[in-house]
C-alpha cells in the first residue's frame, strides 16, 4: 500500500476569500506578522503499490483539482 498526500491550493493570483478572511481575523486577534493566508485542501490518498506518481498526477488534473483555479502538489510517503 502507498500513501500519497495531495495539497490543493488556489492558483497564484486567484482571490482566496477563505484565506483573506482568516488573515483579517488573525490581524484582529493581534497577530500582526501575518502577510498572507491561503486556504486550500489536503487530500490523503491510499493506493495499491503499483499506482505510480504519474497516475496520481493524472487523478489530480482530471478530478481532484481544477487546473483553471487550483495548483496541486503531491507527496509520496
Amino acid at each position: 500500500m502507498k500513501n500519497y498526500k495531495i495539497y490543493v491550493t488556489a492558483k497564484e493570483g486567484i482571490f482566496n476569500p477563505a484565506g483573506a478572511t482568516a488573515a483579517t481575523a488573525l490581524g484582529q486577534l493581534g497577530y500582526d506578522g501575518v502577510n498572507n493566508v491561503r486556504v486550500g485542501k489536503f487530500i490523503e490518498l491510499q493506493t495499491k503499490d503499483d499506482v505510480q506518481r504519474q497516475t496520481v498526477t493524472e487523478m489530480c488534473e482530471k478530478l481532484l483539482a481544477n487546473p483553471v483555479i487550483e495548483d496541486f502538489r503531491i507527496e509520496e510517503e
Binding site: I14, F15, P17, A18, T21, N66, V68, I69
Partner: peptide, 17 residues
Amino acid sequence: LTEAKLLAGALLQNRNL
C-alpha cells in the same frame, strides 16, 4: 459546464463566504 470545459473559467466561493 465549466468543469466539463464546455464553458470557460470556474466558479469560486462567494466573496463574503
